[in-house]
Amino acid sequence: MSDHFKITPHNAISDSDIARVIPCKKLTMNDPIRWLALALKDASREPGLTLFFGLIFAAIPWLIIELVQLTGWHLVIMPAIVCFMLIGPFLAACMYDVSWELEKNHEPTLRHCVKTLKRNALNEWGLGILLMILMIFWLRVASLIHALYPQYMDANFINLLPFLAVGTLVGAVFTLLVFFVSAFTQPILMERKVDLATALLTNMNAIWTNKGPMMLWAFIIMLAVLIGFATWFVGFIFLMPLIGYATWHGYIGTIETKRERHYE
């Protein structure tokens, strides 16, 4: 390893020309469940803001579907998803702020949530653009897989199975990639006010160090999304704020802080 990229104890990279890596803790398989329990507590303490943000998360996919049905133009999905990938991190930051304020025994307000968006806006926009690029690339690969389907074949399950399998595999790879770069990146940017590279490397290091618990957390997020779609987005009203609050507690429980922090 070069002299410009030395790894010090406790998973911290202190001598790098690129970025620093904030040390992480060692998690157990019970930790993601504990994050959800703390998230439920936050939701019960702040039902108004929880419902407000939940309705926004449910409205976004519903509006996309309505636009497609009204216009008959399926390409509207692309710009809609791009816009969501850009504003998504800022919407998530509002939910993190609710948990952060509750942790400090403050009363969360919508005004304070909005003010939080200005803490590290430049790097948060950078994260949004990075996620947008990944999403566009994902959509282009999906279009390519669809284009490879022979038009002369009957659209039955047996004929579609190979393409469904390939599409599912590619989607899973991209989903893991997005998770690998964004699981705790946004909370790090919001609280630490560090650069994007530091937040990304810190997030990747935390996931790599805690593969089992973090894969369980990824499965919980995926399950929440599937339930949301299965309930025609109604499930998002409760599940998305819950995932947002739990992500904040996951960040606090995973990334080392200067002083010990507890919220029980």
Results as ranks from 00 to 15, higher is better:
226 L>S: 14
119 R>C: 02
132 M>Q: 13
137 F>Y: 11
190 M>H: 07
228 G>K: 01
132 M>D: 08
199 A>S: 03
199 A>E: 05
116 T>H: 02
143 S>R: 10
166 V>L: 14
141 V>M: 14
161 L>Q: 09
123 N>G: 01
139 L>Q: 11
194 V>E: 00
119 R>D: 08
219 F>I: 14
159 N>G: 10
183 A>W: 11
228 G>V: 04
210 N>H: 05
147 A>T: 08
204 M>S: 08
213 P>G: 06
174 F>N: 07
151 Q>L: 13
180 F>E: 12
220 I>P: 00
213 P>M: 04
133 I>S: 11
114 V>M: 11
114 V>N: 06
202 T>F: 03
199 A>V: 02
132 M>Y: 10
178 V>A: 13
198 T>E: 05
180 F>T: 14
188 I>P: 02
179 F>L: 06
173 V>I: 15
156 N>S: 10
223 L>H: 09
183 A>Q: 10
136 I>A: 05
124 E>R: 09
122 L>C: 00
197 A>P: 00
176 L>E: 11
178 V>P: 01
164 L>E: 10
226 L>I: 15
219 F>P: 02
202 T>R: 03
115 K>S: 09
173 V>P: 01
117 L>G: 04
123 N>P: 02
135 M>C: 11
157 F>R: 00
224 A>S: 15
202 T>E: 05
139 L>Y: 09
206 A>P: 00
201 L>F: 15
134 L>I: 15
185 T>M: 06
183 A>R: 08
182 S>P: 01
129 I>F: 10
146 H>T: 14
209 T>G: 02
121 A>Y: 10
172 A>L: 14
160 L>W: 01
126 G>I: 07
202 T>L: 03
223 L>V: 15
164 L>S: 06
145 I>Y: 04
225 V>N: 10
124 E>Y: 00
192 R>W: 02
157 F>W: 12
198 T>W: 00
218 A>E: 05
196 L>G: 06
123 N>M: 12
154 D>E: 13
225 V>R: 05
169 L>R: 11
155 A>D: 09
228 G>A: 11
221 I>S: 01
204 M>K: 04
172 A>F: 15
216 L>G: 09
140 R>L: 15
220 I>V: 14
119 R>I: 03
120 N>E: 02
200 L>H: 03
115 K>R: 12
116 T>P: 06
169 L>Y: 12
202 T>V: 03
220 I>H: 00
163 F>R: 07
223 L>P: 07
171 G>T: 13
